[in-house]
Amino acid sequence: MGKPEKKGRALTTVVASNPTNIETLLRVENLDILFGTAKQHVVAVDGVSFKINTGETLAIVGESGCGKTVTSLSIMGLIPCPPGIIDNGSIQFNGKDLLHLKMEEMRKVRGNDIAMIFQEPMTSLNPVLTVGLQMSEAMMAHKGISRKEARKRAIEMLKLVQIPEPEKRMEQYPHQLSGGMRQRVMIGTALSCEPKILIADEPTTALDVTVQAQILDLMNDIKAKLDTSILFITHDLGVVAEIADRVLVMYAGRTIEEALVTELYENPIHPYTEGLLRAIPRLDQYLSADNSVKEALKQMPGIVPSIYKKIEGCSFAPRCPYARKQCGQERPVMKEVVPGHRAACWKPEW
C-alpha cells in the first residue's frame, strides 16, 4: 500500500480528485435495482455509486450477471418497469436527475447527450433498412437537420470510424457488412449526435481479437478527437488495460473496488480483483526457459453467489482466501484506502 505511485499517474490522481478542474458529467449514487415484485424480488444492482468526468473513460469490470449491463441500461432509462424496480438512488447527468425525467425529456437525452452501443453488432442494426438511413435518422430527429445534411454528416461519420468507400456503404444493408464494420457503423451512429457520454456495453465481445484491437484503437482515437467520455463495460481485463482511465470492479451487484487503471493493476486491494488479475494468462510469467510449465494459472475457488440469496456481510466472503468472521457478518463499504483508490474490503483495516 505504501508503494510510491508513478509520477504521471500521481498527478492525474490529484487533478481527478479536485472537482474544480474537472467537471463531473455523470454521477450515479446509491443505485439499487430490483427485479420482481415489491414482495418477492432479486437484487440486481446493490448500492452502486460512481462518477464519470468529462473526457474520461471509466471501465466497469465484472463477470456475467454482476449487474454491469443493468447499471448501464438504467442510465439510458431502459430498464423495463415492471419487472424492474429502481428502488433507491439517483443518476445525475449535468445536474439533471435522469431517473425522474419525463419520457419526452428522456428521449432528448438519449442519443443526443448519452449514446450507447451494444455487444451484438449483428442484431443491433435493423436488417431491412440501409445503413445510411439508420444513421441519418437519429440526426434528423435530434439535430433537426434535413435529410440531405444528415446524409452528408453520416458519410463524415463513416469516414471517422474508418470505413472505406462510405458513399457505397451508405446504400448497403447490414448483412452486406462484416461484424467489425457493423460495430463501426454502430459507433458512428452513436457518435453522430456528438453525445457527451458513450456507453459501450461489451462492444468487442462478439468480435475476434484483431477486429477487437481495431475497434479499441478507434474508440481511443475518437475519444481524443471528440472529447467524449466513455463508460466501458466489459469482463475482459485485457481490454480494460487498453482503453480505460479508471476502473470500477463489480461483484454480485455491488461495487468492490475503484482506482486508476495502472494503480489497480499494480496494487489491487480487494481479494477478488487480485484473483481476477492472477487468473489472466501471461506469456512471460508461467513458462520457464525450456518451455516446461513453471506455475499453473491461478483460479478462484467457488462460484458467484446466487442472486436469489440474501447476502449478509461481504458478498465475496465465501470465496475469499483471507475471509474472517467479520466478513461474513458486516458489509464493508467503499472507502478510500490510498488516495484515489477505493475498495469495499475489511482487509486493509486489519
Partner: peptide
C-alpha cells in the same frame, strides 16, 4: 425483443417511430 429496436430507442426514436419505421418493414 431484437436489439435493433433497443438501438433505435437509444438514438431517441419514439414508440410510433419504432413501430412504423423499424418494425413494419421487418
Amino acid at each position: 425483443n431484437k436489439p435493433y429496436l433497443d438501438a433505435a430507442e437509444i438514438v431517441g426514436a419514439g414508440a410510433l417511430r419504432q413501430m412504423f419505421r423499424h418494425l413494419i418493414p421487418n
